[in-house]
Amino acid sequence: MSQPKLLITGASGFVGCHLVHAAKEAGFSIHATIRHSSKIEDISHLVDTFVEVDFSDVEKLTHWLAEESYMYIIHAAALTKAKRESDMVLVNVDYTINLLKAAFSIPKPPLRVHILSSLAAVGPLSYDNGWIDESSAYQPVTVYGRSKMRMEQLVKEQFSDKPIRIFRPTAVYGPKDKDIFILLRTLDKGIDAYIGRNPQTLSFIFVKDLANLLIQSLKTPLTKLDFYHVSDGNVYDRYQLANIFKKITQKRMWRVHVPYAVVKQVARVSEWLYKSSPKTPVLYTERLNEITAGSWACSIEKAEKELHFEPRYNLEAGLTESLLWYKKHHWL
């Protein structure tokens, strides 16, 4: 019996790499889209075929997808940072819609398409104001979140009758992650810093749990567009990540609260320093809306009920495995 054929976009990225590993374990034949600059050393032995694709050309996409006849598609390619909002929209919105147009215009369309969105598309709540679920209204607070929201809105308008699942994970962490790693590196230096003193509720998802959910649920029947929120099912206060880090590493920490006004000024200076650079700074004014939000508490009841999602990692288990990986690979 031949292996079911799966296309993964963004396969060389942080989540994409883990998707490839999970897909190989599940017995899929994997095709992966990459860019010319993609680093594929960690997945080259797992991927059957690498493809460089122009997502701006619907006609070429259609011809290619018709020729390959993929049974499943997971679209994980995205921009999380960009100097211009137009670049974010091009990749996160236009390219996604182009891929779907092509995929569902061929004689034998895929049985299922999974799209990796983000809880940022919905946005946070104020502190102690319930949990974010699939019925929550859109209120994104960043360019990235707005781009994901717009993508979702267009998918609803144009493909609501197609077998598409859109997943909205909360903060994703794990081996190879570079975003939450910045915080871990700061903690490793003994600095436990916070912006202001307002309370927060946070949620996280270990990358392996996310990858396994996206892969395993490919075989769960689906007839029309649906949405699922993804976290480890727990809610954490703003200090728990640092407390767990301290427990694991036994490091002494210096906890400091920096006034919001001071951090905002630092963010403005960072933006000015990076204005001529193609890169974006780690801290910028709009990101403060995200990292100081009152609540990112996220309900996964729907995914548990309909997709039988059972996260294996809470924050302590996930951080323990992540820190071992960072130490082994000399990131810390």
Rank of each mutant, 00 (worst) to 15 (best):
L6D: 09
K148E: 10
A120S: 15
F204E: 04
E85M: 08
Y274F: 15
S160K: 03
P221H: 02
E25S: 13
E286W: 01
I97G: 03
Y95T: 09
K279N: 13
E271M: 07
L214V: 02
I40N: 09
T80L: 08
V58W: 02
W131M: 15
S231Q: 04
I300D: 06
K24P: 00
F245E: 01
N198F: 01
Y326L: 08
D54V: 03
T292G: 07
I215V: 13
S322M: 08
C298S: 15
F245M: 04
L6V: 05
V266A: 15
L100R: 04
K108M: 07
K83I: 12
T49F: 12
N243K: 10
Q240I: 08
K275D: 14
P163I: 06
W131C: 09
I244R: 02
A303W: 08
T249W: 02
S276W: 14
R238Q: 10
F204K: 03
V91W: 07
K108Y: 10
V89Q: 12
N92G: 05
E59P: 00
A22C: 10
S217Y: 05
D48G: 07
L332T: 12
K5Y: 12
L307S: 01
G13T: 09
G130L: 07
H18L: 03
Q250I: 00
A297S: 14
G145H: 02
V235A: 11
I215M: 11
T220Y: 04
T201S: 15
G27P: 05
L225V: 08
F50Y: 07
S37H: 12
Q153R: 11
G27D: 09
H308R: 11
M1K: 11
A303G: 10
A121C: 06
F159I: 11
I300N: 10
V262L: 15
M151D: 06
K279Y: 13
D54R: 03
S69T: 14
M1G: 15
S105Q: 12
Y95I: 00
E306I: 03
L65T: 05
V20F: 02
L65A: 11
S147W: 04
M1C: 10
S135P: 00
F204L: 05
D42V: 01
A293I: 05
M151N: 10
I164Y: 01
A103L: 07
S126Y: 00
T292K: 06
L65K: 08
L184K: 02
L154K: 14
F309V: 05
H257Q: 13
P107S: 08
Y127A: 03
Q240L: 11
I300C: 09
K224A: 12
H21Q: 14
H45E: 14
M88S: 15
H114A: 14
R168N: 15
E316Q: 13
V266S: 11
V235S: 13
K60E: 15
A303R: 03
K305R: 15
K327R: 12
V207R: 01
Q139K: 13
L202N: 05
S38I: 08
I73R: 06
A242E: 02
I8W: 02
W64H: 14
S276Y: 06
N289I: 03
L332C: 09
I74F: 03
P311I: 02
E25W: 00
T320Q: 13
K156F: 01
D54C: 06
L184I: 12
K5V: 10
K148N: 09
E304F: 00
F227Y: 15
L273A: 10
V93G: 00
V89F: 10
P4C: 07
D133S: 09
L6G: 08
T62Q: 13
E310D: 12
